[in-house]
Design a protein around this nucleic acid. Structure first.
Lengths: 233, 233
DNA sequence: GGATGTCTTTGACCTATGTCAAAAAGAAAG
DNA sequence: CTTTCTTTTTGACATAGGTCAAAGACATCC
């Protein structure tokens, strides 16, 4: 991890957490933040350790995950640019509830917990923005719990592919921007199972896989699978 | 559902959401809130419907759950006295993400979304309290996702029993305050499986079941199961 | 362009847990 | 107390998906 003082007011202005803050508050922030860089695979914080502060991701992606006793990992979510990392713990003063690790070269602003508490006292509206972000994450988790407990793996995969399709503006070619092993973890399964299911779907003409690029050939059928139809899968 | 105007300032003062509010704000609230009662099994709101407001539970318990296409339910959490119901949706203006149903005779204060928005504008500190409550829920969900994806059913059950043990102040006799079927749903499984696992644990001398009352006879072994040891289960 | 390491796929196997059906035990009602 | 309804338990069975092991496919690095 490398570190240096920042001076990036423009970036600050465009982060959701800090939206609509008066310039004075931003200037104050600018003096507090430090820029930190993490290389691929580097740990940003570990589950159970005391919260020392939160991060605003500037560049790169961070995976937040839990580890089982046997070392299997379940990815909770992937935090990307302009998103917050570790804010809940910093706010509540509780230990980090999961591990965070840079998936690629990642740059982030570090906001020490102490200064953070001063900030929200001076600018309660910051909390408003945080609430919005928290709400979204809460809804994400709600859906995730539903997925993990109610759907089988093909259903979760189909849901994920259709989600990528949506997010990609409706293109039938979607690109999974994480490794298949990581995708397996995100879906609550293992690489072998994911591989087999992709094979079956491919055999049945639902899609075509070329590396991380997947072409959806039958969205309707995929939607049926999400809804619990098996289609011989 | 029955409804009447409220005048319960004392109750308001002791709800976490409203902690530390000036009396003027409380008085204003008192004029806004209505008291609503729901009988056992009554729906309070349904997934996907527009958020009209949030509730502060005064008495009783509400189960918040998702339904699969086949009608299987996954309980997300159980909201009890002085807790908030539907606050995220009211805040974010998004539809309710799950169903809410009274598990028993339940009384709650209803806070219309419109008034709620006015309130947080006038009293940003309310949001501070909400954040704390949301954070807790987020951590609960984090754990739940971990449980559902990393642990097998015996592990989830053992974790739940030990949780009840903690919450019950360390007594070795714990009382599950929901039906076994509901508990199964909360653990992401079905009554049959739960019944079989309780049987096995009982056979192995880990606990003793009498109706909804369970006596923990070997906490250490239960903890081992949470950590992934099978112990022939 | 080998050589080394990581990611992905495949096969054989096994087990946890879901499904279906029915009996048993409790709870509620008359 | 008997009837009726709900909840819980048991049994037999099917299967999704995990484990282990090995082979391919890719990427990276001298």
């Amino acid at each position: 991890m490398s570190e240096k003082k920042s001076g990036h007011l423009t970036l600050l202005r465009s982060t959701p957490l800090l939206l609509n803050l008066p310039e004075t508050a931003l200037a104050m922030l600018d003096g507090i933040l430090t820029e930190r860089s993490f290389s691929r695979g580097e740990t940003i914080f570990s589950e159970g350790s005391e919260s020392v502060g939160s991060y605003i991701i500037i560049k790169g992606r961070v995976k937040v995950f839990k580890l089982s006793a046997e070392g299997k990992e379940q990815i909770l979510h992937i935090v990307g640019t302009k998103e917050l990392l570790g804010a809940v713990s910093a706010f509540a003063g509780t230990p980090y509830p999961a591990h965070a690790e840079a998936m690629e070269m990642t740059t982030a602003f570090f906001l020490p917990r102490k200064d953070f508490l001063v900030l929200i006292r001076k600018e309660p509206s910051v909390v408003m923005n945080m609430m919005a972000s928290l709400s979204m994450r809460l809804q994400h988790f709600t859906r995730m719990i539903e997925d993990l407990s109610l759907k089988e793996v093909p259903g979760r995969l189909a849901a994920y592919l259709l989600y990528l399709h949506e997010r990609g503006g409706g293109s039938d070619v979607v690109e999974i921007d994480i490794s298949k092993g990581q995708l397996a973890s995100l879906l609550g399964t293992i690489p072998e199972t994911l591989s087999r299911i992709l094979r079956k779907m491919s055999d049945r003409g639902l899609l075509k896989v070329s590396g991380r690029r997947i072409k959806l050939l039958n969205r309707k059928a995929l939607q049926d699978i999400v809804n619990g139809d098996k289609l011989g899968l």
